[in-house]
Simulated assay, not measured.
Amino acid sequence: MKELMKNTRQHLMTGVSYMIPFVVAGGVLLALSVLLSGSAAVPAEGSALRDLFNIGAAGLGLMVPILAGFIAFSMADRPGIAPGAIGGYLANQIGAGFLGGIVAGILAGIVVYYLKKIKVPSIMRSVMPIFVIPLIGTLVVGGLVVWVIGAPIASVMTGMKAWLEGLGTSNLIILGIVLGAMIAFDMGGPINKVAYGFGAAMVGTIDPATGMASPIALKIMAAIGVAICTPPIGMGVATLLAPKKYTSEEKEAGKAGILMGLIGITEGAIPFAAADPIRVIPSIIVGSAAGSVTAMILGAGNPAPWGGWIVLPVATGKFGYMIATLVGVAVTALMVNILKKPVKDEVVNADAGNNDDEIELDFE
């Protein structure tokens, strides 16, 4: 186990390297659909832009399963891909987000690694890597995700929502810090969704006297809108400021992340957080919290349940909204680059590992 886990960073980087094309393709297509629709919302049902949105959403939907599957692949070779990917899909479905996907991938890698150690008769060796190990591994990992991880996550999310609602709006600065941190923590995961749902519900509550959302609700949604775009833009800017601290794949993901952030897609920062969570997650949390608080102080308002700069046409206090975003981006980029060290840009070998598990099928 010690030998297997000492290369955890390498396993994470392998998963990230396979995940990045899904993030870039899916995220950029989704962002373009929202941008071309001309409004900070999902395009109308039945339109070509909605179809484009769905194509992009499919790419982002595969992001977590691919991450988990190839983390397991790095740990246990090809037999780990199916248990890891299915475990990652289930983790995403129950609301565990990319952090749940990482856990599922590591679990799958460990389970399959030890299944491969089981001694079997020679007649069984050819079917173990393509039938027995994926089957048992998927059952074990899927069962752990659904029956063990799922219930605690659901109860934590319920409690967190109640706590957030209990904070009220009496101290907007504290609320801004909390919302910004929650939005950034798991970048589209369950904690992010709780904070976003809180803001969207506030904006959706109409004041009978004015027929509009209250000014406080607009401020809360502005703080959330800034926090949504800060992580991907901040990490993209960080790759430009200190390119030697990022791999070539991360630098490409950074360019896409800036576009995704401007359109309000926080998931653009996930490749960086998955590869180096210890340094990246605290940096984006602090940056998003700083941006959110700045938006509160400057009095920006956002009537659209969306984030990024795509909401600027309908936002109030546009200058404050932009300044708040730049503050959050600057804090994120500077903090993460201070924490990070230069990296050796290595190409992940997709065929690395033990090839004894491969079976060749001849159909001649």
Rank of each mutant, 00 (worst) to 15 (best):
225 G>S: 08
152 P>E: 00
153 I>M: 14
260 M>K: 08
143 G>L: 04
354 N>H: 02
288 S>E: 07
146 V>W: 13
89 Y>S: 07
172 L>G: 05
359 I>C: 14
312 L>M: 10
92 N>S: 15
52 L>G: 00
194 V>H: 00
148 V>T: 07
240 L>N: 01
286 V>D: 04
250 E>L: 13
14 T>W: 04
318 K>Q: 15
28 V>P: 02
251 K>G: 12
186 D>W: 01
242 A>E: 09
337 N>S: 11
354 N>W: 06
158 T>F: 08
125 R>T: 12
211 G>H: 10
53 F>Y: 02
133 I>K: 03
188 G>E: 11
74 S>Q: 05
205 T>N: 12
261 G>C: 04
15 G>A: 02
123 I>N: 15
295 A>Y: 03
225 G>T: 09
318 K>N: 13
194 V>N: 02
302 N>I: 01
4 L>P: 03
289 A>C: 04
152 P>S: 01
215 P>N: 15
321 Y>E: 08
307 G>M: 07
351 D>W: 12
363 F>C: 13
221 M>T: 06
221 M>G: 13
48 A>R: 04
96 A>T: 10
302 N>G: 09
292 S>Q: 10
165 E>T: 09
254 G>N: 05
337 N>K: 14
303 P>T: 03
227 A>I: 03
48 A>M: 02
44 A>L: 08
172 L>R: 02
263 I>Y: 05
135 L>T: 15
182 M>I: 09
310 I>D: 12
153 I>R: 09
128 M>G: 13
257 G>N: 11
267 E>R: 01
356 D>Y: 09
131 F>V: 10
270 I>L: 02
364 E>T: 13
260 M>G: 11
142 G>Y: 10
146 V>L: 13
104 A>H: 02
38 G>F: 00
80 G>F: 03
5 M>W: 12
